[in-house]
């Protein structure tokens, strides 16, 4: 018997993973959550049929969302994380003793419950005493907050469905307002490779540009995501992502990583020509 999970990366491209066992499936009005074991990628979390998290490559995504802003910000104590109910990003953040408080806002508490059960090693970080869980709509949570956080990490599931509101101008504007005067926001920015995804990347970039004075894009290799190539946004009120990197300070913390290094930090902001061009196209039409 062969049992395969397939995700359409475009109408004409399919990514398939051989499944060993389907462990969990639950659907509510916020979406469908599936968890299964695969032979190549280990345990996988999929929401609405899209791979969100695999045991095999989650370290890349989570490290790139957590360590990039942490290595730039001089004194990050209060962190706000949207999405990330799997606990992967939190797992990286709790490695920093200097962080005092991590607020996690996930609208679908079904994801958190399922991950606690099926990814106990990662989700254990959600029990860290500094972590506060809020089950709420991201926009409702953030719109009344001002000058509260040092870093906001937006771990949105995708451009459609419930995560869609995390990719809007009103959301980025609210994040700007909720950050302190030297605050940083990082977010996942989709892949620039396939055309439909690239348009969304450009839209997100343009919306962030209108809200933040500094907005840069960085990249990583994530095999289980469409095209295997992924972008992230770095938006900031004060710090430059590379010029303000304090490599010596970060390396002195002795945090063990598998993907992130301070050398890679500098390099990941250097983008391929076609990506630079796609971003410049929307930078020019700044409103």
């Amino acid at each position: 018997m062969e049992y395969w999970f397939s995700e359409h990366h475009t109408e004409n491209v399919k990514f398939s993973v051989k499944v060993d066992k389907h462990l969990y499936s639950n659907e509510n009005d916020l979406g469908r959550v599936d968890i299964f074991d695969s032979l190549e990628y280990g345990r996988i979390l999929a929401v609405d049929g899209y791979i969100i998290f695999t045991e095999r490559d989650e370290f890349i995504y989570d490290e790139m969302l957590a360590h990039i802003p942490m290595a730039v910000h001089k004194d990050a104590r209060r962190i706000l994380v949207f999405g990330a109910g799997d606990g992967g990003v939190i797992d990286e953040l709790v490695k920093y003793d200097s962080i005092e408080r991590i607020d996690l806002v996930e609208i679908n508490d079904g994801v958190i419950e399922a991950c606690r059960k099926f990814f106990p090693d990662v989700a254990v970080s959600l029990d860290d005493p500094r972590v506060n869980l809020y089950t709420d709509n991201a926009l409702r949570f953030i719109r009344h907050i001002e000058n509260e956080y040092d870093i906001i990490i937006v771990d949105s599931a995708g451009f459609y469905g419930p995560g869609e509101s995390l990719l809007t101008r009103e959301f980025y504007g609210s994040c700007y307002k909720a950050l302190k005067e030297d605050g940083i926001m990082v977010n996942q920015h989709q892949s620039p490779f396939y055309e439909a995804d690239r348009v969304e990347t450009q839209k997100a970039h343009k919306r962030i540009l209108t809200s933040f004075p500094i907005s840069r894009v960085y990249q990583a290799h994530i095999p289980s995501y469409p095209s295997g190539y992924w972008l992230f946004g770095f938006a900031s009120k004060k710090y430059h992502p590379v010029d303000d990197l304090d490599a010596a300070r970060w390396n002195s913390l002795g945090i063990a990583t598998d993907y992130y290094t301070t050398n890679l930090h500098v390099g990941c902001f250097a983008l391929p020509a076609y990506v630079e061009r796609a971003l410049k196209d929307v930078e020019k039409i700044k409103d």
Partner: peptide
């Protein structure tokens, strides 16, 4: 749906701010 209403409310908030 609620999620679009949240967008509208937040957008009005952001418009007032800006």
């Amino acid at each position: 749906r609620m999620r679009e209403v949240e967008r509208l409310v937040s957008a009005l908030y952001d418009i007032k701010r800006l």
